[in-house]
Design a protein around this nucleic acid. Structure first.
Lengths: 253, 253
DNA sequence: TCAGGAAAGTTCGTATACGAACTTATCAAT
DNA sequence: ATTGATAAGTTCGTATACGAACTTTCCTGA
């Protein structure tokens, strides 16, 4: 690391180094900004800038009125397209794509849900391949694994497919077998799933619901579920905290 | 968007909105901070904070002594595992997985490279499935598409495979057909590729090389290339700016 | 006409300062 | 012993201020 000309960068570099090497261990509380300013011999505003940089990098977390802490690294969850195989497979034990990925059992699983009938806006209509204004069942979920929020999503189904069926009834969630299971109960056989994965910073709302700092990036996945050549389900977006998940993909040539 | 209690967030929101809606078009120069401060009726330091947020989001770019400009939005690049099919396919026109993804021709493609012989550290050894300390050819690349840096990576090959071959000679980069082509030239037939995709904030170094703000998240991909059941190449990490790329994946049930 | 340099404009680094908002620790009163 | 109020500690929002470093414009002089 070459000598930095700017004091706040030097401070940031130094603290980052200490965190990376483990001199500052996760969960540890940093000295108050007052002290840091004194130690480094710079004004408080430079300390604040340095801390903001580290906060953006996801290395630290500030709690107002309490202090600044080195962030804990939560366990990693592996997301793979294979999870959709369990949805459609035999159901010895109840599972969904989510429980599969999170590596948890049905009983450690919980979700918040909110159903609504809406009209497809431009984006949704394009994803579905239907006209704008088409009636759609919008289902918003927040998934918890062992109490920790670890995924939220908005999943949509066409009213023409599900209106008046048990699938449209929130009380049946969570549904063993997940989306694919639900669709199968309607006689719709899912044959292809496409996902578009983007990465971005969370909205303030997402950050709060997922219990992450606003400096932690997220996966934002758009999923299209196909059956007989048409789109039967659209999830847009599926939001997953980036600090506790990785995608796994493979190709055989 | 609800009313924000904090002035600098209001300013940032307002400017962001103007950029998103196109009221401020790419390339345009913003009013100087002095004027902005006056317009919004806040002190200059709040303007600076607001601008820093937008800079981190990759929306604007400040040139010292000159002004602050709305950034040009680079086109979105789609990353899919399909790109590895090109590598191994017939070579009518030279291509690599990178040119395929970026949707560019060979001539719009350029890369910086740096080769070195190193000894495998713990992580690398585990990825390869060899002993720590094994000799490895480390190749660092920065890929440019139409002049814009859009990917950087560290790709490693085992010395036992490549030492003394043309593949180990930097002058042969870029190699038509990419990694797979190189390995084929050594008589190694790639049969499987696995990728682990994480999302995180860029290191300061990565942000600089990729020309992104430190607030723009990146894809960090670890790739393992297999042939006959062993790992013949490891790319760790492949770093791709999150503001100009999305992953595309699909599964057929 | 052209080169050189000064002047103006601009972002950026940095300091001091004060109070608001929030959390934690302390201590007193019931 | 439990509760409730108070104080201390801490981050955060915000203001003013000055000069450094850099870029662009413009003017001067040959």
């Amino acid at each position: 690391m070459t000598e930095r000309p700017h004091a706040y960068l030097r401070v940031a570099d130094d603290l980052r180094e200490q965190i990376k090497t483990g001199a500052l261990t996760p969960g540890l509380k940093l000295p108050p900004q007052r002290l840091l300013a004194e130690e480094y011999g710079v004004s408080d505003i430079l300390i604040r800038r340095a801390l903001e940089i580290l906060r953006n990098e996801g290395l630290i977390e500030s709690r107002q009125g309490s202090g600044t802490f080195v962030r804990e690294r939560p366990p990693v969850r592996r997301i793979s397209m294979d999870r959709y195989l369990v949805d459609s497979g035999p159901q010895e034990t109840p599972q969904t794509s989510f429980t599969h990925d999170a590596g948890i059992t049905w009983s450690q699983y919980r979700l918040d849900k909110a159903f609504a009938w809406i009209e497809a806006d431009e984006r949704l209509a394009e994803l579905f391949g239907v006209d704008v204004g088409a009636r759609v069942l919008e289902r918003r979920f927040v998934f918890y694994a062992v109490g920790e929020p670890s995924q939220m999503s908005r999943s949509c189904l066409l009213a023409s497919d599900v209106e008046g069926t048990p699938v449209a009834d929130p009380r049946h969630e969570p549904w063993p077998g997940g989306n694919t299971g639900q669709l199968r109960s309607l006689g719709i056989k899912v044959d292809k799933i496409r996902e578009t994965t983007a990465v971005r910073m969370p909205t303030p709302d997402e950050a709060e619901r997922l219990g992450i700092g606003t400096g932690v990036p997220v996966f934002s996945i758009t999923r299209r579920t196909y059956a007989q050549g048409r789109v039967v389900e659209v999830a847009d977006p599926i939001v997953i905290p980036g600090d506790r998940a990785v995608r796994e993909d493979s190709i055989v040539l």
